[in-house]
Measured scan of single mutants.
Amino acid sequence: SSGAIIYTVELKRYGGPLGITISGTEEPFDPIIISSLTKGGLAERTGAIHIGDRILAINSSSLKGKPLSEAIHLLQMAGETVTLKIKKQTD
């Protein structure tokens, strides 16, 4: 049976990049997913974020019904501590 787990990851960026690339579309209900991780970057080092994971919220702002451009804007405005709500498929 296919299921999913949902969890929250807190990234402290200390002025540096998060080390993630996200992808999606401008269709508001398409998923926003992690499309790549910078090798040795902040997100990869947590061990908790993987390519293909879906981002449900950024700093408690839900991405439900929001296009990719809004998600990118939220990441850019997120500040030093970025909290990502992640949904991972478990097959």
Rank of each mutant, 00 (worst) to 15 (best):
Y7E: 15
L42S: 10
I55N: 00
K12R: 14
I6R: 06
P28S: 10
A78I: 04
D30E: 14
G24Q: 12
I5M: 15
R54I: 10
E27P: 02
R13W: 02
N59G: 08
I6Y: 14
A4L: 14
A43T: 05
L68I: 13
A57M: 12
P28W: 04
T38Y: 00
P31V: 11
E27G: 11
E44P: 01
P31E: 04
L37T: 02
S1P: 02
P31Y: 13
G52D: 00
M77L: 11
T21I: 06
K66D: 01
S61H: 09
D53Y: 00
F29R: 12
E10R: 06
G15N: 12
E10C: 10
N59E: 03
I20A: 03
I6D: 15
A78C: 10
P31K: 10
Y7H: 15
A57R: 06
K66E: 05
I33K: 11
I6G: 04
I33G: 08
S1V: 15
G16I: 03
I20C: 06
N59R: 00
R45Y: 02
N59L: 01
P31C: 15
L68G: 04
I6W: 06
Y14M: 15
L18A: 03
G65H: 14
I55T: 02
A78W: 03
S23T: 13
K66L: 08
T25P: 01
F29V: 12
I55D: 02
I22R: 00
L68A: 07
A43N: 00
V9R: 03
V9N: 02
K64G: 11
I55A: 00
S23F: 03
I33E: 12
S60D: 12
L74V: 15
G15M: 14
A57D: 08
S61W: 14
P67D: 04
D91H: 15
K66S: 06
Y14H: 12
T46L: 08
I20Q: 01
L18E: 03
I32N: 01
K12A: 07
L18D: 00
G24F: 04
L18W: 13
A4P: 15
R54P: 03
I5Q: 15
G65C: 08
E70P: 02
L68T: 09
S35H: 09
L42C: 15
L68R: 09
I6L: 05
I22A: 00
E27Q: 12
A4I: 15
A78T: 05
S61V: 12
T38F: 06
G40K: 03
E26P: 05
E44T: 06
L37K: 02
G40Y: 10
T8G: 02
M77F: 09
R54F: 07
P67M: 04
A43H: 04
R54K: 08
R13P: 14
G52E: 02
L37D: 01
I5P: 15
P28K: 09
I22W: 00
S61R: 14
T8E: 03
L68P: 04
G47N: 10
R54M: 13
T8N: 12
I55H: 04
F29E: 10
L18T: 03
L56H: 01
P31D: 04
N59F: 02
A4V: 09
G52R: 04
G19P: 02
G65K: 07
I58W: 04
E27Y: 13
T38I: 15
G19Q: 02
P67G: 13
E70M: 09
P67W: 03
L42D: 02
G47H: 06
T46C: 09
A4D: 13
L11A: 00
A78F: 01
Y7M: 15
I34S: 00
I5K: 13
E44A: 13
P31W: 05
P28H: 08
I55W: 00
S61K: 11
G24C: 04
S1Y: 14
L56N: 02
S1F: 09
I58H: 06
T38N: 11
I5D: 10
M77P: 01
Q76A: 13
G52V: 03
G79R: 15
T21S: 09
K39P: 13
I51T: 15
I55S: 00
I20V: 08
D53T: 01
S60W: 04
G3A: 09
Q76H: 13
I34F: 02
S61P: 01
V82I: 09
P17T: 15
Y7K: 15
L56R: 02
R54S: 11
M77V: 13
I32M: 02
G47Y: 01
I22N: 01
G19W: 00
I6A: 08
G19L: 00
S69W: 11
R13D: 08
Y7Q: 15
L37R: 04
T38W: 12
R54N: 10
G52P: 04
S36E: 08
K64S: 11
R13G: 10
E70I: 06
S1I: 13
A78P: 09
L42I: 14
T38A: 14
A43K: 00
V9W: 05
